[in-house]
């Protein structure tokens, strides 16, 4: 038997699943091949872990914990039954409205200021210069009037 063939059969050999003839062939190979024997030993040790793990220690308070969890879940379920409309409908609606209001407000605040070009604005801009005394009465005219007076 070749080493490669043995590697395919080793787990079945260790579990005693092989027919007698093949079981014997594997045993004989292991007696002569140190490398395969080492692998077989490793595999045996690793699979042996399954036996060690078989019965994990269960906490002595297991039933108490199950009972406490059961009661806790029942209490929560009762609380949920008490206010289903508020939790399932009104809360999401309220939060959605707040979100929409926030988005709308954000857009409004972020809008750039648009200059006004209405006819009233134009008229206002045009009138202002004539109301300014300095512009309606140039300095030269003022000085000439002063001289004439003297």
């Amino acid at each position: 038997m070749k080493c490669k063939t043995l590697h395919k059969k080793l787990i079945f050999f260790l579990e005693g699943d092989l027919p007698d003839k093949e079981q014997k062939e594997v045993r004989e190979h292991l007696e002569h091949c140190a490398d395969c024997a080492a692998f077989a030993q490793e595999m045996k040790k690793t699979l042996g872990i399954l036996e060690l793990e078989k019965s994990p220690e269960v906490t002595p308070f297991f039933y108490t914990r199950v009972k406490a969890r059961l009661e806790n879940q029942e209490e929560k379920a009762e609380e949920r039954v008490g206010s289903p409309v508020w939790e399932r409908v009104l809360q999401p609606v309220l939060f959605s409205l707040l979100l929409l209001a926030g988005i709308y407000g954000g857009f409004k605040i972020g809008e750039p200021a648009v200059p006004e070009y209405s006819p009233a604005t134009y008229a206002k801009n045009e009138l202002i210069p004539f109301l300014n005394d300095m512009q309606t009465e140039p300095l030269e005219t003022f000085l000439m009037e002063q001289n004439n007076g003297n």
């Binding site: 590697h7 395919k8 787990i11 079945f12 579990e15 490793e42 595999m43």
Partner: peptide, 13 residues
């Protein structure tokens, strides 16, 4: 399952 385990354990070895 045993065949696959064997393959993985051999690779690890």
């Amino acid at each position: 399952a045993k065949k696959n385990l064997q393959k993985k354990l051999y690779l690890c070895y």
